[in-house]
């Protein structure tokens, strides 16, 4: 669910040209947390022998979802940019299935936001990939009570 106050952020993220090219959708957006979906497409295949999607597509989903979590953190006063992102690939995503990502901004300082993210396909019990990242903060707002 996306709260009304976050609708602007949702629209900004989904309308980024590359997010639109991949058809990325925000499923949930709340304080410092985001959930996104990347629909299955044959364009994303990275290994034609197996039909498994390319790691780069999973990276894009994780990066976008992590950025969304940072933007909607109540103490962040603006947009963000990725400083560092590490992805660990646990297993290949099943061909034909959508990929979902959940990201959580678990710490924020005056200048940096730290994020963890996990990606799944239809089998929510076994992650496809996990990520950790550091993101820039434009300026910090005091958290409203």
């Amino acid at each position: 669910m996306v709260e009304a106050s976050n609708k602007v952020i949702q629209s900004f993220i989904e309308k980024m040209p590359h997010a639109e090219a991949l058809g990325l959708k925000i499923l949930q957006l709340s304080a410092g947390e985001a959930e996104m979906l990347m629909p299955w497409s044959e364009d994303l295949i990275g290994d034609p022998a197996t039909g498994v999607i390319h790691g780069g597509a999973v990276s894009t989903l994780m990066d976008t979802c992590s950025g969304a979590a940072v933007i909607c953190h109540p103490e962040n006063g603006g947009v963000t940019a990725t400083l560092d992102l590490r992805i660990d690939y646990m297993r290949p995503a099943s061909p034909g299935q959508d990929v979902r990502a959940h990201a959580e901004c678990y710490n924020i300082t005056r200048s940096i936001a730290f994020v963890r993210a996990t990606a799944f396909d239809d089998d929510a019990s076994r992650p496809v990939a996990t990520a950790t990242g550091a993101f820039t903060i434009a300026f910090r707002k005091e958290a409203s009570a």
Binding site: K15, A19, A57, S59, T60, D63, T64, V79, A81, L85
Partner: peptide, 17 residues
Amino acid sequence: LIGNPMLPALHGGVTAA
């Protein structure tokens, strides 16, 4: 390939990919 259209800048995911 654009992420933030205001800058504009390549999407960080595109760079990673």
